Computed example of a mutant assay.
Amino acid sequence: MQLDHPTLRGSTIRLEPLAQHHAADLALACADSADGSRSIWRYLLDARIYRASGMDGLVRSLLERRGAGSDLPFAIVELDSGRAVGTTRFMEIELDNRVVEIGTWIGLAHQGGGINLESKYLMLQHAFERLGVARVQFKIDHRNLASIAAVERLHAQREGVLRNHIVLADGTARSSVYYSMLDSEWPALEIHLRTLLARGRRAAGAAAGAPCEHG
């Protein structure tokens, strides 16, 4: 397995190699809500660096990990706006075993609109069809029910829970639920993901064409 780092293009987003200039867009997109009640960072391992060093420091850290060969990070860029709204990356890379993990974070205002699904599709397609990966894994905080539901929607296989193996930035112990996909499963999974993407595009088109109501 050999890693490469091209720009991956979808219908609503592109995944381009992360660079320091993406930090300003990411800081804006991934900030906590104005009242502090909502945050993407509650369950994420990257929160420790983000809280200590801000988005500039987090992007620098990801680029350092890319240089060390442990991570391959992409910025998720909206095609309409040209702005970075999150990141996704290959991590926990094991070249000899042909294993990678996918980790993703996306700004609050950009969740639920199909960006996560399309980014996962692009990453999985690249992993299995270009990189020759045998296994893709995901690990999710057991309390992060929205992310668990999103990964299960992809039909990834749940493998179990690694209990209290990481201490988060807020001092709490995190247990992680592990999921995986295998290269032998990819042909069927690709059909499933393409169906989900097509369904999402149809729903978005119907919503865009619906008449507006005024009070």
Rank of each mutant, 00 (worst) to 15 (best):
L145C: 14
R65Y: 04
H142Y: 14
N144E: 15
G54H: 02
R174G: 09
T87E: 01
R60C: 14
D183H: 03
P6R: 02
M123S: 08
V99F: 07
G113N: 05
C30A: 08
H165D: 09
R130M: 14
S39W: 11
N164H: 05
A210C: 07
I93G: 00
R42D: 15
I106S: 04
H110P: 11
A208Q: 09
R60W: 14
L182N: 01
A204F: 00
R89E: 02
S61L: 13
I93V: 03
R163H: 04
A31H: 09
G205V: 08
G103Y: 05
A29R: 05
G171D: 13
T88R: 05
L145Y: 15
V151F: 08
V177L: 14
S37F: 03
E152V: 13
L62C: 01
S184Y: 00
I166R: 09
S175P: 01
S33N: 03
N164I: 10
L162K: 10
G107I: 04
I76C: 09
L182K: 01
A127W: 12
H155D: 07
G200R: 02
L196A: 08
S61D: 14
S180E: 01
R158E: 11
S175K: 01
S53R: 09
W105M: 10
E101N: 15
G114P: 05
V77D: 02
I115G: 03
H214F: 13
A208S: 08
I76S: 04
G205H: 03
H142W: 15
L193M: 08
D46I: 11
T7R: 00
C30S: 05
E101F: 15
E213S: 01
R65C: 09
G205L: 07
C212I: 15
I115A: 04
E213N: 06
V99T: 05
I93T: 02
H110K: 07
A149M: 13
L3I: 02
H126Y: 06
A27M: 11
L168S: 13
S147Q: 08
T104K: 07
S176D: 12
D56P: 01
H126T: 07
L8A: 06
W105P: 07
V99N: 05
I140Q: 10
I166Y: 07
L197S: 06
S176Y: 09
Y50M: 14
H126C: 08
R199L: 01
A24F: 12
A24G: 01
A208I: 12
H142E: 15
L8F: 03
D32T: 06
I140D: 12
F74M: 02
K139P: 14
G103V: 10
S147W: 06
D71S: 09
Q2M: 13
E78T: 05
W105I: 08
Y50V: 14
Y178H: 11
F90W: 03
H192W: 07
T12L: 07
A23W: 05
Y178I: 15
L79S: 00
E78H: 02
L145E: 15
G54P: 09
N97G: 02
A210S: 06
A207I: 06
W41C: 11
G10Y: 10
I115T: 11
L122F: 09
S33Q: 03
